[in-house]
C-alpha cells in the first residue's frame, strides 16, 4: 500500500520531495478521479502521495507594479472573488468548475495535471503566465508554455514543487474567454478560446489568441500574433482571411466521445473570426 504524507509547510513538502518521489496532490478533484478504484476502497495511487493542500503559506494573491502572484494553494474560489485578479481569469474559473470543485481545486493543480481540455491553461497561456518552482535548494522560474510539454506531461523534476503563478500585468483594450462545452456549465470543454488585444491610435499594439482542446497542448503562436501587431485595425480586419489561414494549420483537433474534429476546427475558426471582426478602433 502506498503512503500518504500531509505537508503543512512548504519546507516540510520540499524536504519530503528531496527524499523520494511522490505523487503530488493539491485539491484532489482531478487526482482522485484519475486514481479511482471502487467505492469504499482506498484511492488507487501508483506511488506515495504528498498532500500539499494544507500548506497555508502557499495560499495567497499579491500584486506589485509588474506582476500578479497567485500561490499554488490558492483555491479557485479565492481567485474568483479577488478584485486583484484580471476579469478574464475570474471568468474562466466560474466557467470551468462548479462551486464544490472551486472550493478545493487550485490553478497549480490544473497546471500539474496538464490536461489538454483544461480551460484555465488557455487563459494562463494568453496572459503569459510564468511559474515559480522550488526545490529544497533551488528556486527557478519557467514560462507555462515551456513547462507543459504534452498531454499530461510537465517539466517538473521529482524534487520540485510549483509554488506560485506569476502573471504579468498587461494593459489590454479588451480580452475574453469563451468556453465551448457540451452544456452551459460544469462540463469538460469540447474546445475553448481566449483572446485579447490593445489598440492605440487605431494601431494594433498587442494581439493574443489561444485555443484549448484543439491540439495536445494549448495553441498560442507568438509568431502569428507578431505578423499582425502593428497593423491598423482596418488592415487587420481586411486581412481576416490571412489570419485564419495562419492559424488553420495549428488547429489539429481530434474526434472523441465529446465532439468531432470538424466541429472543433470550424468553431475555433468562427471564434477567431468573431474576435477579429469585433475589434474596435480605440
Amino acid at each position: 500500500m502506498v503512503d500518504g504524507l500531509i505537508a503543512k509547510s512548504l519546507n516540510e513538502a520540499l524536504e519530503a520531495l528531496d527524499n523520494k518521489e511522490y505523487q503530488i496532490v493539491a485539491g484532489g478533484t482531478d487526482m482522485l478521479i484519475q486514481n479511482r478504484s471502487h467505492s469504499g476502497m482506498n484511492i488507487d495511487y501508483k506511488k506515495d502521495v504528498l498532500y500539499i493542500n494544507l500548506i497555508d503559506e502557499l495560499d495567497f494573491i499579491k500584486v506589485d507594479e509588474k506582476n500578479l502572484y497567485i500561490g499554488a494553494n490558492t483555491r479557485l474560489e479565492t481567485i474568483l472573488e479577488s478584485k486583484l485578479v484580471p476579469q478574464i481569469l475570474r471568468d474562466v474559473v466560474i466557467e470551468m468548475a462548479s462551486p464544490g470543485i472551486r472550493h478545493t481545486a487550485t490553478l497549480a493543480g490544473n497546471i500539474g495535471n496538464a490536461s489538454p481540455a483544461g480551460d484555465s491553461l488557455v487563459v494562463l497561456y494568453l496572459l503569459d503566465c510564468e511559474l515559480e518552482i522550488k526545490s529544497l535548494t533551488k528556486t527557478r522560474k519557467v514560462l507555462l508554455k515551456d513547462f507543459i510539454t504534452g498531454v499530461r506531461k510537465i517539466a517538473l523534476n521529482k524534487n520540485e514543487l510549483i509554488t506560485k503563478l506569476i502573471i504579468p500585468k498587461i494593459n489590454l483594450t479588451d480580452c475574453y474567454f469563451h468556453k465551448v462545452g457540451p452544456r452551459l456549465s460544469d462540463a469538460i470543454s469540447k474546445l475553448s478560446f481566449a483572446c485579447g488585444y490593445s489598440v492605440e491610435n487605431s494601431i494594433i499594439k498587442d494581439l493574443r489568441v489561444a485555443f484549448g482542446a484543439v491540439y495536445v497542448t494549448v495553441v498560442r503562436s507568438r509568431e502569428v500574433e507578431g505578423k499582425f501587431i502593428g497593423q491598423s485595425v482596418n488592415d487587420l480586419k481586411a486581412n481576416l482571411d490571412d489570419i485564419i489561414n495562419a492559424y488553420e494549420p495549428l488547429i489539429k483537433p481530434i474526434d472523441d466521445q465529446r465532439s468531432n474534429r470538424v466541429y472543433r476546427k470550424n468553431v475555433a475558426i468562427n471564434l477567431l473570426r468573431e474576435f477579429i471582426e469585433n475589434i474596435k478602433e480605440d
Binding site: 496532490v25 484532489g28 502521495v49 498532500y51 494544507l54 470543485i101
Partner: peptide, 20 residues
C-alpha cells in the same frame, strides 16, 4: 461543507480535511 463551503466528498482526500 468544508470550512462552511460546499465540496464534493467523493473527490476530497481524507488528507485534506486534517485539522479542518
Amino acid at each position: 461543507l468544508l470550512n462552511h463551503k460546499i465540496v464534493n466528498s467523493c473527490c476530497t482526500p481524507l488528507a485534506n480535511v486534517d485539522g479542518q
